[in-house]
Design a protein around this nucleic acid. Sequence first.
RNA 1: CGGAGAGUAGUAUAGUGGCAGUAUGCAUGCUUUGGGAGCAUGAGGCCCGAGUCCGAUUCUCGGCUCUCCGACCA
Length: 414
Amino acid sequence: MLQSQLFGKTRKEAPADEVAKNAKLLIRAGYIDKLQSGVYTYLPLGFRVLKKIETIIREEMNAAGGQELLMPALHPKDNWQTTGRWDTMDDLYKVMDSSGRENALGPTHEEIVVPLAKQFISSYKDLPLSVYQIQNKFRMELRAKSGILRGREFIMKDLYSFHRDEADLARYYEIMKGVYKRVFERAGIGEVTHLTFASGGSFSKYSHEFQTVTPAGEDIIHVCTKCGVAINKEVVADQKGCPECGNEDLREEKAIEVGNIFELKTKYSAPFELTYKDEAGNDQPVIMGCYGIGLGRLLGTVVEVLGDEKGIVWPEAISPFQVHLIDLSGKNDAVKDEAKTLYETLEGAGVEVLFDDRDLRAGEKFADADLLGIGLRAVVSEKSLAAGGVELKRRTETEGKVVSKEEFLKMFAK
RNA sequence: CGGAGAGUAGUAUAGUGGCAGUAUGCAUGCUUUGGGAGCAUGAGGCCCGAGUCCGAUUCUCGGCUCUCCGACCA
């Protein structure tokens, strides 16, 4: 991608009405644009990161047997009345069309996935089943805040699992714990993301959240200094010490919830009468679990956790491009040609490369590179060529080093 | 939803009851080229509605929007 052609530009100053670090940096760097409070556009750069996060999540969900589907965001009122949530869910978006028909904009999909599953689940042979989607959700937050961390429209992965009994749900629930851990590790925030005990579970008394420690967090968690498991503030009151290892030395931290897993049991299968026939031909209730990850929130959390005073710092796995190639040829056409050739070679090799071909001074290009936060920066200039090739610097390093063009290209060999 | 604050150019800001200014960004030209350079020229703006007034971007009222604090958040 030629940076001169990129839709979206960097800015020196953050908008006056944004306070959150993630929003300031992502807007300054041209990753997102705010349409209204809590509602953001993903510009090409931001969309690339989002897609990478999506891919990680998809791979992990598929590995856990999840089958991807896509349900509508526009929900008939009836479904929400069946569970009672039409009236009890305060942040449900309700819309009325010109004929007076009422719908909800989906904040979550139990009301849709359960009747759907009812069409295809009739026997114990149909279980277990796990389906998921990655889709825009709507919640009428009374107060959207913290940039993309708490929006009114946001992209979420929601997976629903269906089981014949609680034991099988418990089995799958444990699998999902591991799956979630891997997702956050791959997204680069594994070290600061803690499995957190929260209230609301049924058979095990707890549900679980995945909380990432950051000053931008809205939640307070207590992290076990021994095993790293945490408990949230609801649980602190009636739980002495770490529920996992018993250690009583807990560290209080601010954190943001990047994912949660929850045993629904029969909460939604009951109102929709989702049952299956067991081996004896008797009707049994289907036992369910649900598992969510907010993609935009995860993206914003990475910016909060890893970003520095100069800009964003992406982990390799979700960087919008693998390498930021910078042409510092100035008026030297021979050098310019070298840079361009290198860019074309990389593109030809299938490397995701952002090529800063803009006619700007070095300082501006470096400042923009730091702001964009692509993991690896590669400079081609008279200086670098004289020193042997390409000057490489990782975003997290302060000093670069020069390598030959061949060596540079070899880094991307598959 | 309660409380507080703010809406002036793409962005950030100054200012005024009577021709709205600066920086940056943008366009053009020249100079410059390893950490947000310089000169010149140019385009671009007072959230919406009502009221007061000879005259409102400015004052009053209403609305809308945004931000912060609180409450809420499967």
